[in-house]
């Protein structure tokens, strides 16, 4: 299990490849991966940048708690959560959730659960910079995503 925060752009697929090397190849029947990236639009406005604030210490603890609860609920062989903090540009990876299990349903359900809980419980806050130079705090997650 690993939880990682990045203050610079990270390559989610390189992290997945690295993590997968630690999992016995013969056992890992299923991997489920979610990668979320920054869009250049939100609520009909063009977004040119994003600042991701977090609560150093608590953010890591909350992510570790969410992962630990998923590991107690599903038979996982591995789990990796990476999240960006600080100044972000459109196209950059914001979040990676990867889970490995012997079977597809455990991997997929655990990945989905970790992502949804992260979005509602982990202390991160987005402030968007718009094309006209103004800033605004994002007040809620996009419904259904």
């Amino acid at each position: 299990m690993a939880v990682e925060l990045y203050s610079d752009d990270f390559d989610p697929w390189a992290l997945v490849a690295r993590a997968e090397r630690d999992i016995p190849a013969e056992a890992r029947g299923a991997a489920s991966v979610f990668v979320g990236r920054m869009r250049d639009f939100n609520e009909d406005d063009t977004v040119t940048g994003l600042f991701l604030e977090h609560y150093p210490g608590m953010t890591e603890r909350e992510l570790e708690r969410i992962v630990a609860e998923a590991e107690s609920r599903w038979p996982l062989l591995g789990c990796l959560v990476a999240h960006r903090v600080g100044d972000v540009r459109p196209g950059d990876a914001l979040v990676l959730v990867a889970t490995w299990s012997a079977h597809r349903i455990a991997a997929r359900d655990a990945c989905s659960s970790i992502l949804e809980r992260l979005k509602h419980e982990a202390p991160f806050w987005k402030r968007e910079r718009l094309a006209d130079g103004s800033d605004r705090w994002v007040e809620k997650n996009t419904p259904g995503s």
Partner: peptide
């Protein structure tokens, strides 16, 4: 750790107030 408005705070504790989270 996540808490509620009725959670008790004692000497030396660290309290945080924040708006709904928007990560991911």
């Amino acid at each position: 750790e996540q808490a509620a408005l009725d959670t008790l705070v004692r000497d030396g504790d660290e309290v945080a107030y924040f708006p709904p989270v928007t990560g991911g």
